[in-house]
C-alpha cells in the first residue's frame, strides 16, 4: 500500500489523512492468511489457535498501519473498535457451539417414541427409553409453581406501585431485589430444611414450592415495570367517576398492562423450567411415571439431563438421551420466550 503517498496529502487537507474504507477488510484478510501460514508451518492443529493468532495479527496490523497514516489517536480508536468486535465474536462462539451440538446430537434419538416412553425398564447405560415421565414431572411442578408464584408476585407488584409508600414498601422493594439473586440451590435447601423437620420424603410439590420462591421476585419486577407504564390519567379518570380504587386497579390498570404482565410471567416460567438444583434436592428423580405431584419422587427434564449425564459416565446411549432431552428443554424455553414476545407485541398498549 502506498502509505507514503497518503501521508503526504496530510498538510493540505483539513480533515487529516484517513485510511480508505476497505483497509480493515484488507488487514483482516492479510492477517488471516498469515495466521494460516504460521499455523501450517508451525504445525498447530487447533483452529482456535489459528483464530487467536489471526486476531492478534489483525490488531497489531491495524495499530501499526493506522498509527503511521492517521496518527496515534486514530490508531487507538481503531484498536478499540477491533477489540470490541473481537469481544462480540468471542461471545457468539460458545452460543453457536452450544446450539449446534445440542441440535446435532439431540436429533439422533429424539422421536415420538422418545417423547412417549419413560425410563422405567431401561438401564441407564442401555439405549432406548424416553422422557415422558420427565415431561410430566416438569409440567406439573412448573405449573404448580406458577399457580403459587404468579399471583403472589402480581399482587406484591400492585402493592408496590399502587399503594406502596413508607418503610414497608421500601423493605419489600429492597428484598425483592435481593431475592432475585438467591441461588436456586439455597431455595431448595430452605424447603429441604422444612422437609427434614416434618420428616417428609421427596415429592413433586416440594420442588414447586422452591421454584415458586425463585419465580416470585422475577414476576414482581416485571409486573412493577408494566404497571408503572400505565398513564396516571387513566387512574384519575376512573377515580373521578367515583370508581373505588380496587375496581380501578382491576378494571382499568390491569387490563391496560395485561400484555406486559403476561410476558413477564411467561419469561419467569421459562426461567424456572430450566432449574435443576432444587428439583434434585426435593423431587429426587424417578425413572417411572408418577403423575401425582403430592406423593412420591418424580423426575423433571433438567434433572433427567443431569442424571443421564452423571449416573452413567461414558455411556453413549445415556449421553444421546441427555442431548435429546436438552434439545427438548431448549425448544420448550425458546417457545416460551418467543410466545412471550408475541404476547408483548399483540397486547402492547396502543
Amino acid at each position: 500500500m502506498s502509505t507514503a503517498a497518503i501521508a503526504e496529502k496530510r498538510p493540505s487537507s483539513l480533515r487529516g489523512a484517513s485510511l480508505p474504507k476497505w483497509s480493515p477488510y484488507a488487514i483482516a484478510l492479510g492477517s488471516l492468511a498469515l495466521a494460516v501460514l504460521i499455523g501450517t508451518l508451525g504445525g498447530l492443529h487447533s483452529r482456535v489457535q489459528w483464530g487467536l493468532i489471526a486476531a492478534l495479527l489483525f490488531i497489531l496490523g491495524t495499530y501499526g498501519v493506522s498509527a503511521r497514516v492517521e496518527g496515534r489517536r486514530q490508531a487507538k480508536d481503531r484498536v478499540a473498535t477491533s477489540l470490541v468486535w473481537v469481544a462480540f465474536l468471542l461471545a457468539v462462539v460458545p452460543l453457536v457451539s452450544l446450539v449446534w451440538t445440542t441440535v446435532q446430537r439431540g436429533v439422533k434419538v429424539l422421536d415420538v417414541y422418545f417423547l412417549t416412553h419413560s425410563m422405567g425398564v431401561v438401564a441407564d447405560t442401555e439405549p432406548g427409553g424416553g422422557i415422558y415421565h420427565a415431561i410430566i414431572g416438569s409440567l406439573e411442578q412448573v405449573g404448580l409453581a406458577t399457580l403459587i408464584g404468579a399471583p403472589i408476585g402480581v399482587l406484591t407488584a400492585i402493592y408496590l406501585v399502587e399503594y406502596g409508600r413508607g418503610r414497608l414498601a421500601q423493605a419489600v422493594t429492597f428484598f425483592v431485589d435481593v431475592m432475585t439473586g438467591i441461588p436456586s440451590i439455597v431455595a431448595g435447601l430452605f424447603i429441604l430444611s422444612l422437609m427434614l423437620i416434618f420428616k417428609m420424603q421427596p415429592f413433586g410439590f416440594a420442588g414447586s414450592l422452591a421454584l415458586a420462591i425463585l419465580m416470585m421476585p422475577v414476576v414482581v419486577r416485571s409486573t412493577e415495570e408494566m404497571l408503572k407504564l400505565v398513564p396516571n390519567e387513566l387512574r384519575e379518570a376512573s377515580l373521578a367517576l367515583g370508581v373505588p380504587k380496587w375496581r380501578t386497579i382491576l378494571k382499568v390498570v390491569l387490563p391496560t398492562s395485561i400484555g406486559g404482565i403476561t410476558t413477564g410471567i411467561v419469561l419467569s416460567i421459562a426461567r424456572i423450567a430450566g432449574e435443576t438444583a432444587p428439583v434434585l434436592l426435593l423431587v429426587f428423580g424417578n425413572p417411572f411415571i408418577n403423575t401425582n405431584p403430592f406423593e412420591g419422587a418424580q423426575s423433571s427434564l433438567p434433572l433427567y439431563i443431569y442424571q443421564q449425564y452423571a449416573n452413567s459416565v461414558g455411556s453413549g446411549a445415556a449421553y444421546d438421551r441427555a442431548w435429546a432431552a436438552s434439545l427438548t428443554l431448549i425448544a420448550f424455553v425458546m417457545i416460551l420466550n418467543l410466545g412471550a414476545r408475541g404476547i408483548a407485541r399483540w397486547k402492547a398498549p396502543r
Partner: peptide
C-alpha cells in the same frame, strides 16, 4: 380494604419468606 390487605399481605409474605429462609437454614 380487602384488596389492600391482599396486596400488602403478599408483600409481607415475600419478606416472611426471606426471613424464614434465613431462620430455618
Amino acid at each position: 380494604r380487602v384488596f389492600l390487605g391482599l396486596t400488602r399481605g403478599s408483600g409481607i409474605l415475600l419478606l416472611a419468606i426471606m426471613v424464614a429462609i434465613a431462620g430455618f437454614l
